[in-house]
Design a protein around this nucleic acid. Structure first.
Length: 312
DNA sequence: AGCGGTCAAGTTGAT
DNA sequence: ATCAACTTGACCGCT
Protein backbone atom coordinates (compact mmCIF):
# COMPACT_ATOMS: atom_id res chain seq x y z
CA UNK A 1 0.00 0.00 0.00
CA UNK A 2 1.10 3.53 -0.71
CA UNK A 3 0.84 6.13 2.00
CA UNK A 4 0.73 9.59 0.42
CA UNK A 5 2.39 12.50 2.17
CA UNK A 6 1.55 16.19 2.38
CA UNK A 7 4.45 18.61 2.79
CA UNK A 8 4.30 21.25 5.52
CA UNK A 9 1.48 23.58 4.52
CA UNK A 10 -1.98 23.86 2.98
CA UNK A 11 -3.18 25.60 -0.14
CA UNK A 12 -6.95 25.57 0.27
CA UNK A 13 -7.55 24.65 3.90
CA UNK A 14 -7.31 27.52 6.38
CA UNK A 15 -4.59 25.81 8.41
CA UNK A 16 -1.59 28.09 8.87
CA UNK A 17 1.69 27.92 10.72
CA UNK A 18 3.02 31.14 12.18
CA UNK A 19 6.57 32.43 12.26
CA UNK A 20 8.61 35.19 13.79
CA UNK A 21 11.60 37.16 12.58
CA UNK A 22 14.69 37.53 14.72
CA UNK A 23 14.91 41.22 13.80
CA UNK A 24 11.53 41.95 15.31
CA UNK A 25 12.57 40.38 18.62
CA UNK A 26 16.07 41.81 18.96
CA UNK A 27 15.24 45.08 20.71
CA UNK A 28 12.80 43.55 23.17
CA UNK A 29 13.46 42.39 26.74
CA UNK A 30 14.01 38.65 27.01
CA UNK A 31 10.77 38.07 28.86
CA UNK A 32 8.79 39.76 26.10
CA UNK A 33 10.63 37.74 23.44
CA UNK A 34 9.68 34.52 25.21
CA UNK A 35 6.06 35.61 25.52
CA UNK A 36 5.78 36.27 21.80
CA UNK A 37 7.54 33.04 20.89
CA UNK A 38 5.38 31.04 23.29
CA UNK A 39 2.23 32.35 21.68
CA UNK A 40 3.46 31.24 18.26
CA UNK A 41 4.55 27.80 19.45
CA UNK A 42 1.20 27.31 21.13
CA UNK A 43 -0.65 28.33 17.96
CA UNK A 44 1.57 26.06 15.85
CA UNK A 45 0.88 23.06 18.08
CA UNK A 46 -2.82 23.73 17.55
CA UNK A 47 -2.35 24.02 13.79
CA UNK A 48 -0.40 20.77 13.75
CA UNK A 49 -3.28 19.02 15.48
CA UNK A 50 -5.66 20.40 12.82
CA UNK A 51 -3.27 19.35 10.06
CA UNK A 52 -3.08 15.79 11.33
CA UNK A 53 -6.84 15.59 11.77
CA UNK A 54 -7.31 16.86 8.22
CA UNK A 55 -4.87 14.31 6.83
CA UNK A 56 -6.62 11.50 8.64
CA UNK A 57 -10.05 12.59 7.39
CA UNK A 58 -8.88 12.72 3.79
CA UNK A 59 -6.89 9.52 3.79
CA UNK A 60 -3.51 11.27 3.61
CA UNK A 61 -1.29 9.01 5.69
CA UNK A 62 1.76 11.20 6.15
CA UNK A 63 2.50 14.80 7.04
CA UNK A 64 5.86 16.55 6.78
CA UNK A 65 6.28 19.06 9.60
CA UNK A 66 7.80 22.43 8.80
CA UNK A 67 11.20 22.99 10.41
CA UNK A 68 9.96 26.37 11.66
CA UNK A 69 7.25 24.81 13.82
CA UNK A 70 9.20 26.28 16.76
CA UNK A 71 10.50 29.41 15.07
CA UNK A 72 14.05 30.54 15.83
CA UNK A 73 14.51 27.75 18.40
CA UNK A 74 18.23 27.42 17.66
CA UNK A 75 18.89 31.05 16.79
CA UNK A 76 22.17 32.18 18.41
CA UNK A 77 20.64 35.29 19.98
CA UNK A 78 16.94 34.69 20.47
CA UNK A 79 16.90 30.87 20.59
CA UNK A 80 15.10 29.06 23.38
CA UNK A 81 13.95 25.73 24.80
CA UNK A 82 10.26 24.90 24.98
CA UNK A 83 10.45 24.44 28.72
CA UNK A 84 11.79 27.99 29.13
CA UNK A 85 8.76 29.57 27.50
CA UNK A 86 5.93 30.90 29.64
CA UNK A 87 3.35 28.11 29.66
CA UNK A 88 6.01 25.78 28.29
CA UNK A 89 4.50 22.73 29.97
CA UNK A 90 1.18 23.34 28.25
CA UNK A 91 2.91 23.73 24.90
CA UNK A 92 4.76 20.46 25.42
CA UNK A 93 1.46 18.82 26.33
CA UNK A 94 -0.11 20.22 23.16
CA UNK A 95 2.63 18.65 21.01
CA UNK A 96 2.24 15.37 22.87
CA UNK A 97 -1.47 15.51 22.01
CA UNK A 98 -0.46 15.74 18.36
CA UNK A 99 1.58 12.62 18.95
CA UNK A 100 -1.41 10.83 20.43
CA UNK A 101 -3.65 11.74 17.51
CA UNK A 102 -0.91 10.65 15.14
CA UNK A 103 -0.58 7.28 16.80
CA UNK A 104 -4.32 6.74 17.14
CA UNK A 105 -4.78 7.18 13.39
CA UNK A 106 -1.60 5.44 12.30
CA UNK A 107 -0.25 8.60 10.66
CA UNK A 108 3.37 9.08 9.83
CA UNK A 109 5.15 12.39 10.45
CA UNK A 110 8.50 13.53 9.15
CA UNK A 111 10.92 16.44 9.31
CA UNK A 112 13.03 17.93 6.55
CA UNK A 113 15.59 20.38 7.98
CA UNK A 114 16.42 23.05 5.45
CA UNK A 115 19.45 23.86 3.41
CA UNK A 116 21.53 25.16 6.29
CA UNK A 117 21.78 21.76 7.92
CA UNK A 118 24.94 20.21 6.49
CA UNK A 119 26.62 17.23 8.04
CA UNK A 120 29.57 17.28 5.67
CA UNK A 121 30.68 20.89 5.84
CA UNK A 122 34.39 21.51 6.30
CA UNK A 123 33.45 24.36 8.62
CA UNK A 124 33.28 23.42 12.31
CA UNK A 125 30.89 26.30 12.87
CA UNK A 126 28.43 25.12 10.22
CA UNK A 127 28.65 21.59 11.57
CA UNK A 128 28.02 22.74 15.12
CA UNK A 129 24.93 24.69 14.07
CA UNK A 130 23.69 21.76 12.03
CA UNK A 131 24.02 19.38 14.96
CA UNK A 132 22.14 21.82 17.18
CA UNK A 133 19.36 22.07 14.63
CA UNK A 134 19.14 18.29 14.25
CA UNK A 135 19.00 17.96 18.03
CA UNK A 136 16.14 20.41 18.25
CA UNK A 137 14.19 18.68 15.49
CA UNK A 138 14.74 15.32 17.17
CA UNK A 139 13.26 16.73 20.38
CA UNK A 140 10.09 17.82 18.61
CA UNK A 141 10.09 14.53 16.71
CA UNK A 142 10.15 12.75 20.05
CA UNK A 143 7.12 14.70 21.26
CA UNK A 144 5.00 14.05 18.19
CA UNK A 145 6.38 10.60 17.35
CA UNK A 146 7.94 11.60 14.04
CA UNK A 147 10.15 8.83 12.70
CA UNK A 148 12.01 10.63 9.90
CA UNK A 149 14.49 13.50 9.84
CA UNK A 150 15.55 13.75 6.25
CA UNK A 151 18.54 15.75 5.00
CA UNK A 152 20.54 16.05 1.80
CA UNK A 153 24.10 14.88 1.36
CA UNK A 154 25.38 18.44 1.66
CA UNK A 155 27.86 20.40 -0.43
CA UNK A 156 30.46 19.04 -2.81
CA UNK A 157 33.23 21.41 -1.68
CA UNK A 158 35.23 20.59 -4.78
CA UNK A 159 36.02 17.07 -3.53
CA UNK A 160 32.99 14.86 -3.27
CA UNK A 161 34.75 11.70 -2.05
CA UNK A 162 36.28 13.62 0.85
CA UNK A 163 32.95 15.32 1.55
CA UNK A 164 31.16 11.97 1.66
CA UNK A 165 33.80 10.63 4.04
CA UNK A 166 33.11 13.50 6.40
CA UNK A 167 29.40 12.75 6.07
CA UNK A 168 29.90 9.12 7.10
CA UNK A 169 32.11 10.08 10.01
CA UNK A 170 29.63 12.63 11.37
CA UNK A 171 26.65 10.31 10.92
CA UNK A 172 28.41 7.67 12.99
CA UNK A 173 28.78 10.14 15.85
CA UNK A 174 25.20 11.37 15.91
CA UNK A 175 23.10 10.98 19.04
CA UNK A 176 20.64 8.08 18.85
CA UNK A 177 17.58 10.34 18.82
CA UNK A 178 18.80 11.83 15.53
CA UNK A 179 20.45 8.75 14.06
CA UNK A 180 17.49 6.42 14.29
CA UNK A 181 15.32 8.96 12.44
CA UNK A 182 17.83 10.13 9.88
CA UNK A 183 17.55 9.61 6.14
CA UNK A 184 19.59 10.96 3.23
CA UNK A 185 17.95 12.36 0.12
CA UNK A 186 19.48 12.60 -3.34
CA UNK A 187 19.35 16.20 -4.55
CA UNK A 188 19.10 17.80 -7.98
CA UNK A 189 22.55 19.41 -8.18
CA UNK A 190 25.19 17.52 -6.22
CA UNK A 191 24.60 14.00 -4.89
CA UNK A 192 22.88 11.30 -6.92
CA UNK A 193 21.37 8.09 -5.56
CA UNK A 194 24.38 6.22 -6.91
CA UNK A 195 26.69 8.36 -4.78
CA UNK A 196 24.58 8.22 -1.62
CA UNK A 197 23.65 4.54 -1.60
CA UNK A 198 27.13 3.41 -0.47
CA UNK A 199 26.97 5.95 2.37
CA UNK A 200 23.55 4.59 3.31
CA UNK A 201 24.77 1.01 3.33
CA UNK A 202 27.84 1.88 5.37
CA UNK A 203 25.99 3.92 7.99
CA UNK A 204 22.64 2.15 8.14
CA UNK A 205 20.88 5.42 7.28
CA UNK A 206 18.25 4.84 4.55
CA UNK A 207 17.94 6.68 1.24
CA UNK A 208 14.91 8.95 0.84
CA UNK A 209 14.69 8.52 -2.91
CA UNK A 210 13.51 11.66 -4.71
CA UNK A 211 12.68 10.53 -8.22
CA UNK A 212 12.25 14.08 -9.51
CA UNK A 213 15.75 15.01 -8.38
CA UNK A 214 17.03 11.80 -9.93
CA UNK A 215 15.43 12.73 -13.24
CA UNK A 216 17.04 16.21 -13.01
CA UNK A 217 20.43 14.80 -12.02
CA UNK A 218 20.68 11.27 -13.42
CA UNK A 219 23.50 8.86 -12.65
CA UNK A 220 22.99 6.01 -15.06
CA UNK A 221 20.90 4.01 -12.60
CA UNK A 222 17.30 3.32 -13.56
CA UNK A 223 14.32 4.39 -11.47
CA UNK A 224 13.57 0.71 -10.94
CA UNK A 225 17.04 -0.10 -9.67
CA UNK A 226 17.23 2.86 -7.31
CA UNK A 227 13.72 2.18 -6.02
CA UNK A 228 14.74 -1.38 -5.13
CA UNK A 229 18.06 -0.46 -3.57
CA UNK A 230 16.55 2.47 -1.65
CA UNK A 231 13.71 0.26 -0.44
CA UNK A 232 16.26 -2.23 0.84
CA UNK A 233 18.03 0.44 2.92
CA UNK A 234 14.78 1.20 4.74
CA UNK A 235 13.83 -2.42 5.31
CA UNK A 236 17.33 -3.16 6.53
CA UNK A 237 16.84 -0.47 9.19
CA UNK A 238 13.39 -1.84 10.06
CA UNK A 239 11.75 1.32 8.77
CA UNK A 240 9.03 2.12 6.21
CA UNK A 241 10.43 3.45 2.92
CA UNK A 242 9.92 7.16 2.24
CA UNK A 243 10.20 8.48 -1.31
CA UNK A 244 9.55 11.89 -2.84
CA UNK A 245 7.71 12.85 -6.01
CA UNK A 246 7.13 16.08 -7.92
CA UNK A 247 6.50 17.24 -11.47
CA UNK A 248 8.40 19.94 -13.38
CA UNK A 249 6.61 23.28 -13.50
CA UNK A 250 7.13 23.87 -17.21
CA UNK A 251 7.53 20.29 -18.30
CA UNK A 252 10.66 18.24 -18.81
CA UNK A 253 11.74 20.30 -21.83
CA UNK A 254 11.16 23.67 -20.14
CA UNK A 255 13.99 26.02 -19.15
CA UNK A 256 14.26 24.71 -15.56
CA UNK A 257 12.83 21.26 -14.88
CA UNK A 258 13.89 21.52 -11.24
CA UNK A 259 11.02 23.90 -10.43
CA UNK A 260 7.98 22.21 -8.95
CA UNK A 261 4.59 22.16 -10.61
CA UNK A 262 1.32 23.01 -8.86
CA UNK A 263 0.18 19.43 -9.31
CA UNK A 264 1.62 16.00 -10.14
CA UNK A 265 1.34 14.84 -13.72
CA UNK A 266 0.23 11.29 -13.25
CA UNK A 267 2.72 10.07 -15.86
CA UNK A 268 5.54 11.25 -13.59
CA UNK A 269 4.47 8.67 -11.00
CA UNK A 270 6.89 5.81 -11.67
CA UNK A 271 5.09 2.89 -13.21
CA UNK A 272 7.35 0.63 -11.18
CA UNK A 273 6.04 2.03 -7.89
CA UNK A 274 2.52 1.37 -9.08
CA UNK A 275 3.36 -2.13 -10.15
CA UNK A 276 5.06 -2.94 -6.89
CA UNK A 277 3.02 -1.18 -4.29
CA UNK A 278 -0.33 0.05 -5.50
CA UNK A 279 -0.95 -3.36 -7.02
CA UNK A 280 0.42 -4.92 -3.85
CA UNK A 281 2.65 -7.27 -5.77
CA UNK A 282 5.01 -7.31 -2.83
CA UNK A 283 2.30 -8.33 -0.43
CA UNK A 284 -0.34 -6.49 1.51
CA UNK A 285 1.90 -6.05 4.53
CA UNK A 286 4.34 -3.67 2.96
CA UNK A 287 3.80 0.04 2.93
CA UNK A 288 5.73 2.84 1.37
CA UNK A 289 5.37 6.57 1.88
CA UNK A 290 5.40 8.89 -1.14
CA UNK A 291 5.63 12.51 -0.12
CA UNK A 292 4.18 14.86 -2.72
CA UNK A 293 6.10 18.06 -3.34
CA UNK A 294 3.70 20.24 -5.31
CA UNK A 295 2.78 23.86 -4.86
CA UNK A 296 -0.93 23.24 -4.53
CA UNK A 297 -0.21 21.00 -1.55
CA UNK A 298 -3.19 19.03 -0.24
CA UNK A 299 -5.10 19.71 -3.47
CA UNK A 300 -2.32 18.05 -5.44
CA UNK A 301 -2.13 15.07 -3.08
CA UNK A 302 -5.87 14.48 -3.24
CA UNK A 303 -5.96 14.85 -7.02
CA UNK A 304 -3.13 12.37 -7.49
CA UNK A 305 -4.72 9.89 -5.10
CA UNK A 306 -7.99 10.13 -7.03
CA UNK A 307 -6.26 9.71 -10.39
CA UNK A 308 -4.27 6.70 -9.27
CA UNK A 309 -7.30 5.09 -7.67
CA UNK A 310 -9.01 5.36 -11.04
CA UNK A 311 -6.20 3.42 -12.70
CA UNK A 312 -6.27 0.33 -10.60
C1' DA B 1 -5.75 48.73 7.00
C1' DG B 2 -3.07 47.62 3.32
C1' DC B 3 1.33 47.36 0.82
C1' DG B 4 5.66 45.42 -0.37
C1' DG B 5 10.35 44.43 1.00
C1' DT B 6 12.49 41.19 3.89
C1' DC B 7 13.29 37.05 6.45
C1' DA B 8 19.21 33.18 10.80
C1' DA B 9 21.68 30.09 8.76
C1' DG B 10 25.01 27.36 3.26
C1' DT B 11 26.16 26.07 -1.24
C1' DT B 12 25.87 25.95 -6.03
C1' DG B 13 25.54 27.26 -10.72
C1' DA B 14 23.11 30.26 -14.06
C1' DT B 15 23.11 34.96 -15.46
C1' DA C 1 29.56 39.75 -8.93
C1' DT C 2 24.89 38.87 -8.03
C1' DC C 3 21.10 36.06 -7.20
C1' DA C 4 17.60 32.47 -7.25
C1' DA C 5 16.80 27.96 -5.75
C1' DC C 6 16.04 24.96 -2.05
C1' DT C 7 9.44 22.99 1.24
C1' DT C 8 6.93 28.12 0.89
C1' DG C 9 4.51 32.41 2.43
C1' DA C 10 4.32 35.06 6.65
C1' DC C 11 5.77 38.96 9.06
C1' DC C 12 6.51 43.69 10.04
C1' DG C 13 7.48 48.47 9.41
C1' DC C 14 5.93 51.89 6.72
C1' DT C 15 2.38 54.90 4.94
Amino acid sequence: MIRFGLCCIFKGEPIRFRRKTAASLKGLPRSRQLELLAEICRANAESLLSALAYCHERGIGDFRINSQILPLATHPEVGYQLRDLPGGDEIITAFKSCGELRRRHGLRTTFHPDQFVLLNSPSAEVTRHSLAELGYQAEVAELVGADVINIHGGGGYGDKPAALKRLVKRIKRLPQAVYRRLSLENDDRIYTPGELLPVCVETGVPLAYDVHHHRCLPDGLSVEEVSERARATWLEAGREPCFHLSSPRQGWTGPNPRLHHDYIQVEDFPAYWLACWLACRLGHQERITVEIEAKHKELAVLRLMAELAGRE
